[in-house]
Simulated scan of single mutants.
Amino acid sequence: MTYFTEQRSVEAVVERTNLDANPRLAQVMTSLIEHLHAFAKDVALTESEWEYAITFLTSTGQLCSQERQEFILLSDVLGLSMLVDAINHRRPTGATDSTVFGPFHVKGAPIRDMGENITLDGKGESCQFTGRVVDLSGSPIAGACVDVWSDNADGYYDVQQPGIQPQWNNRGRFITGTDGTYAFRGIKPTSYPIPDDGPVGALLSALGRHPYRPAHMHFLITAANHERLVTHTFAAGDEYLGSDAVFGVKHSLVTSYERADQDTVWRCNFDFVLTPDTTDSPPSTPPSPR
């Protein structure tokens, strides 16, 4: 038996884990304890700082609800969400990169006709989104579900403004045909701040960081025999591309918005390249983290 000392704190805690504990849980918790204790020793954590951290985490949890997940927001701004995504979605050359899912997806968005307008509040600059869903060889994928969502022209998602925005505003699902193409009408997205009226916002302010995300459109693409793709497309030229509050931008996902002379509609074309699913499991829609 190891008695607890500053020098042997890790050993004292780790050896209490029962040998019958789940091996993966034991591995994860051992590593967490090692890094957590090393961090406290490295910065010589004071009691007042420890108490402040407990208060911060408590207030973070107290703000969580069905409509808001402050802990996911904390994970996002620390870059942890993007790191977990990168570890779990390493993709072969040529496949479309993934990025964070975000807290505003809603399951069961209406399946709309190809080319339909998803903007129901009449706000914003109209934009035609087009492209193809293909495999690594460039062949079109029929029957792919292209689930899309974005904020409105004021920078809010419909679930943030119930009773103000129409339900399913700037949301929809589109099923590709034999040519793998998708098309829908939305708005040219706008940059917006993540919720910053809670402890995570206070942390960003204390660190001298802004809360803004660059303008983007969300995509969740599922197809039989292919890995699910969760990604965004980002508007080229946005001032926050290099300082996204949640680190979600990847160079390959930045795309142009263009319009022809005297054309009042913006146009954005982007092809998505899916990866074969080697797990033999059917595609599924991830649960909303809200």
Rank of each mutant, 00 (worst) to 15 (best):
N88Y: 08
F234P: 01
D238S: 04
N22G: 00
E116Y: 02
V249G: 10
D261F: 08
V14S: 03
A38L: 10
S48I: 07
A86F: 02
T176N: 05
T233L: 14
P166M: 15
L78T: 08
P103G: 14
P110S: 12
Y240P: 01
P289Y: 01
D263Y: 03
T231L: 02
D196K: 07
T181N: 13
T96K: 09
G61P: 06
G201V: 04
L19Y: 07
D263Q: 10
T96F: 05
T231R: 03
Y192F: 10
F184Y: 10
S205Y: 12
Q160A: 03
D238Q: 04
K107R: 15
L25I: 10
E15M: 05
A144R: 07
P166S: 14
V148W: 07
L83T: 06
G172V: 02
D271I: 00
P287C: 14
Q69T: 09
K107Q: 14
G102N: 12
I72M: 14
P166G: 13
L220M: 09
F71G: 11
W149Y: 14
N152S: 08
P166K: 09
D85Q: 15
Y192V: 01
D158Y: 11
A26P: 00
L220I: 03
T275L: 10
T275Y: 06
A223W: 00
Q7D: 15
E125M: 08
P103F: 12
S75F: 08
V10T: 05
I194H: 08
V265D: 12
S281Y: 07
P92T: 10
V77K: 02
W266E: 09
D158H: 03
Q27K: 13
R112T: 03
E67D: 12
R209T: 07
S191P: 01
Y212L: 09
